[in-house]
């Protein structure tokens, strides 16, 4: 194979001349991180709520939460993204839909990707939170109620603090997934990392350099997130409990 490696390509100016290809990559990294982190916050909030609701002794609430989780788990991420991006604006009240469609394309792409990734991941977070709560001894809930806590107080002071400690390891893998899954936003044109990789291939005809660097950036994100979560895990460790000695 004869391939002309050209690593300095990252420092040459883009066609418009304003900046370099390196800056494109940085821009992509920025959007990948921004999108993933904001969607992660949404996923944690909605997912915790849905996960808790699945465990409450109320058929209607737990049934609704189950339906929510099943809906978001059984439709491919890409299909969900296209539905948020292409379908939702049409189904909104006309004035809102039109306003959305006339807004900055970057804004449209980001909002659709944010809602999509956040809710998609929330269904997975909900499953982890539910199994975390269910893995606690049944007596813990009784003990909370017996002390006079209301059910919401029992969740807040007794069940959730332990459940969240238990689900940190599985949540770590969901957190990693959200960064990887954010690449799906390339399909609606959001300029995140994998979109920029494709752009560089188109513009520079140096595909390997672009792909290698972008892949390395994803690896780097992975390592940072894992070390971060390890620190969190250490911080919330309970002395004398399970692996927490």
């Amino acid at each position: 194979m004869s391939y002309n490696w050209n690593w300095p390509i990252f420092f040459s100016p883009v066609p418009s001349g304003e900046t370099t290809y390196l800056f494109w990559l940085i821009e992509g990294l920025k959007f990948t991180v921004l999108l993933s982190l904001s969607a992660w916050v949404l996923a944690l909030i909605v997912g915790s709520l849905a996960g808790v609701l699945r465990t409450v002794p109320n058929r209607f609430l737990s049934g609704a939460a189950t339906a929510y989780v099943e809906l978001f788990r059984n439709i491919p991420l890409l299909v969900q993204l296209f539905i948020w991006y292409f379908v939702m604006p049409e189904l909104l009240p006309k004035s809102m839909g039109d306003a959305f469609k006339q807004s900055d394309p970057l804004f449209q792409q980001f909002v659709a990707a944010f809602v999509c990734l956040g809710l998609f991941t929330s269904a997975r977070v909900a499953e982890q939170v539910r199994s975390g709560i269910n893995s606690l001894p049944r007596g813990q809930k009784s003990a909370g109620l017996a002390l006079g806590f209301t059910l919401p107080q029992t969740y807040r002071f007794v069940l959730l603090p332990m459940a969240f400690r238990i689900v940190i390891p599985p949540l770590t893998s969901e957190f990693l997934n959200i960064f990887k899954n954010s690449s799906v936003a390339t399909t609606i044109g959001l300029i995140e990392l994998s979109r920029q990789a494709q752009q560089l291939v188109d513009y520079t005809a140096q595909p390997y350099e672009a792909f290698i660097v972008v892949t390395a950036l994803y690896l780097m994100i992975n390592i940072i997130v894992m070390s971060l979560m390890r620190v969190v895990e250490g911080r919330v460790r309970v002395p004398g409990y399970m692996g927490g000695k």
Binding site: L176, S182, S183, T186, S194, F211, V214, Y218, L219, N222
Partner: peptide, 17 residues
């Protein structure tokens, strides 16, 4: 670990390349 750290989309694009 390598394959699990990279988005599937990147893997698809890599092999397409």
């Amino acid at each position: 670990n390598l394959f699990r750290s990279v988005p599937l989309i990147m893997v698809i694009l890599w092999f397409y390349l």
